[in-house]
C-alpha cells in the first residue's frame, strides 16, 4: 500500500509541475501576447490531467474510497474536475483557450495547497458510504468546476469589455467569442452550477436524514452552501426577471464563484463543522 501511495504522490507532483508550467505559459501568453503559447499550454494541461487522473485512480484503488475524505483528496479532485471542465469547454470552442489564464492559476493554487497538506489516507467507516453521500460528493465537485468556469468566463468578459471600452487593442482578446457570447456562456455555466449546488445540497440533506435523522442542521458549511445557492438564485433571477446582462451580471458571477470557494475552503477554517474532512 505504501508503495502505491508513494507512486501516487510522485505522479501528483508531476501533475503539479505540468499545471505550474501551463499556468506560467497561459499568463505569459495573455500578458505578452504570445499566441503560440496557448496550444502548448493546453497540451501541458492535458498531459498533467492524464498524470493527475492516474494518481487519483491509484489512490482510489489503494485507499478503497473516492477522493473526498481528506483535504488533500478534496482539493486534488476539485482541481481535477475544474481542469476537465475547462478542457471540455475549450475542446468545444477553441476560442476559449484563453480562459486557461483564469482557470489554471486557480487549479495550481488548489493542487499547491493539496501538496502542502497531509497525503495520509483517511478512514471511512462503511456505514458512512451511502449512495446519497456519493451523489453529494460527485455533485459538489461538478458544482465547484462549473462555478469556476462561470466565474472565469465572467472574468474574461470583464477583461475584454474593459479593453474594448478603452480601445486597447489586444488581438488575442479579439479572437475570443463576442462579449455577448461570453456573457451567455458564463450564464449557462452559472445556471449549471446552480443546479449542481441544488443537487449537492439536496443529496447531502437526504444523506444527513438517513444518517442522523434530520435533513438540515444549520451547520456552517451547510449554511454557506445554502447562501451560495441563494446567490446563484439571485444571479439567475436578476438576469431573467430584471434583465441584468453584461458587467453587472459578470461581477455577480465572479462574486458567486468566490462564495462557492469560501464554502469549500474558507468556512471550515473559522467554524467547527460536520464537514471536518474539508478542514486543511
Amino acid at each position: 500500500m505504501i508503495k502505491i501511495l508513494k507512486l501516487e504522490i510522485i505522479l501528483f507532483w508531476i501533475a503539479v509541475g505540468f499545471y505550474a508550467i501551463s499556468t506560467f505559459m497561459y499568463v505569459t501568453a495573455l500578458t505578452f501576447k504570445k499566441e503560440k503559447f496557448f496550444p502548448k499550454a493546453t497540451l501541458l494541461v492535458k498531459i498533467g490531467l492524464v498524470v493527475h487522473s492516474i494518481a487519483l485512480i491509484a489512490r482510489w484503488i489503494e485507499v478503497g474510497h473516492g477522493p473526498y475524505m481528506t483535504p488533500y483528496e478534496v482539493l486534488s479532485s476539485n482541481a481535477w474536475m475544474s481542469t476537465v471542465a475547462f478542457l471540455l469547454l475549450q475542446y468545444r470552442n477553441k476560442k476559449l483557450r484563453v480562459l486557461g489564464t483564469f482557470v489554471m492559476p486557480a487549479v495550481f493554487i488548489m493542487v499547491g495547497i493539496a501538496v502542502m497538506s497531509s497525503a495520509e489516507a483517511g478512514n471511512v467507516p462503511s456505514s458512512f458510504l451511502l449512495y446519497w453521500l456519493i451523489v453529494h460528493v460527485l455533485f459538489a465537485k461538478l458544482a465547484y468546476g462549473s462555478s469556476m468556469i462561470s466565474g472565469g468566463l465572467a472574468g474574461l468578459y470583464l477583461y475584454k469589455e474593459r479593453s474594448d471600452r478603452l480601445n486597447k487593442s489586444n488581438y488575442l482578446l479579439d479572437k475570443l467569442p463576442s462579449i455577448e457570447q461570453l456573457d451567455v456562456l458564463s450564464y449557462k455555466f452559472g445556471a449549471f452550477a446552480f443546479i449542481m449546488l441544488g443537487v449537492m445540497i439536496a443529496s447531502g440533506a437526504v444523506w444527513a436524514n438517513k444518517a442522523w435523522g434530520r435533513y438540515w442542521g444549520w451547520d456552517p458549511v451547510e449554511t454557506w452552501a445554502f447562501i451560495s445557492w441563494l446567490i446563484y438564485a439571485l444571479y439567475l433571477h436578476l438576469r431573467v426577471m430584471i434583465g441584468w446582462r453584461g458587467k453587472k451580471a459578470a461581477w455577480l458571477a465572479v462574486f458567486s464563484f468566490l462564495m462557492v470557494v469560501f464554502s469549500y475552503f474558507g468556512i471550515t477554517f473559522i467554524y467547527p463543522t460536520v464537514h471536518e474532512n474539508l478542514t486543511v
Binding site: 456552517p220 439571485l234 433571477h237 426577471m241 467554524y271
Partner: peptide, 18 residues
C-alpha cells in the same frame, strides 16, 4: 422585485447566522 429582495434578505440573514 419582492422575490429578489427576499432572496437578498434571506442571504444576509443566513450570513449573520454564521
Amino acid at each position: 422585485k419582492l422575490a429578489i429582495w427576499l432572496i437578498i434578505i434571506l442571504t444576509l440573514a443566513s450570513t449573520i447566522g454564521i
